[in-house]
Nucleic acid binder design. Structure first.
Lengths: 151, 151
DNA sequence: CGTGAAAACGACTTATG
DNA sequence: CATAAGTCGTTTTCACG
């Protein structure tokens, strides 16, 4: 079952914009059978409703000098301490994503660094600032990432 | 150290486009102190060089009817079989990302579903089509995802 | 919510330093 | 590789159904 508050035309627009965030309203109109300004109104509404959270360019991190991707699982060392880990690590720029997860560990991070040494340094900073232990999984190869998933 | 093949202005452009993929060349110019057409040339070059891999809209999956996010670790059951797992699962639309990783398991997937039952069904399909065992970590909350990491 | 038209703005090309 | 100028397409707003 799909959310009835987002109907077919809006879903189509979301799908198209998810795969090409710079598609023009004119082209979106051709693809959906709507006029340019009808599409324009719908997109603005989707943005206001928060269904479109933003637009971004996908950057080639390897070519940019950040070839090392890793997942870092995090567990607080002292369970009696207030757990404000996400706040404490927010400003660490190497962290691309931060989730809280069910299971043995409390948080999962996705990080990008230039070298193994930079990863080592990063892990040290995370442990220090948040008083946590870490478990790291290195990414060997990325088949695909952030593929549009709309249904 | 940063990659000398991508210098400061290009990095700035990449950073700006990573956070706002629909920013106009005019505004990129104002933000970088370059003329519109200079920025235009640089962006086209960044696209051709593959440093910009594409543009996308960030979609609110919860509101779209896919509130459940999970990470699925994958291990082949029969190590003597050819390992074409990524090929076998490529057409499963619930899979947003697919990495091969170092460690006990061979692959890591990020998936989105509507319900726990849909996740159960998805895991069954993955195991069947790729002859693998799975270990699943449920995401409880997303603090942030795909934050621009450019240095 | 849709359309179509008009005005403002940005994209893209070409010529030039 | 940068800039300036001109054309063309897109965005945005508006009045209206």
């Amino acid at each position: 079952m799909t959310d009835s508050a987002v109907e077919s035309t809006d879903r189509k627009i979301l799908q198209l914009l998810a795969s090409d965030g710079r598609m023009s309203f004119t082209d979106l109109g051709k693809a959906t059978g709507l006029s340019t300004s009808a599409v324009h109104q719908r997109v603005k509404r989707l943005e206001q409703r928060g269904l479109i959270q933003g637009y971004g360019a996908t950057v080639n991190h390897a070519e940019l000098g950040l070839p090392l991707t890793a997942f870092v699982s995090i567990r607080p060392i002292d369970p009696s301490q207030p757990d404000d880990c996400p706040d404490r690590i927010r400003d660490i720029t190497e962290i691309e994503s931060c989730w809280s997860v069910a299971g043995t560990e409390a948080y999962l991070l996705k990080v990008r660094t230039a070298t193994p040494a930079a990863l080592e340094d990063l892990l040290g900073r995370i442990r220090n600032v948040a008083n946590v232990s870490t478990r790291t999984t290195i990414v060997l190869s990325t088949y695909y990432e952030n593929r549009p998933v709309t249904d």
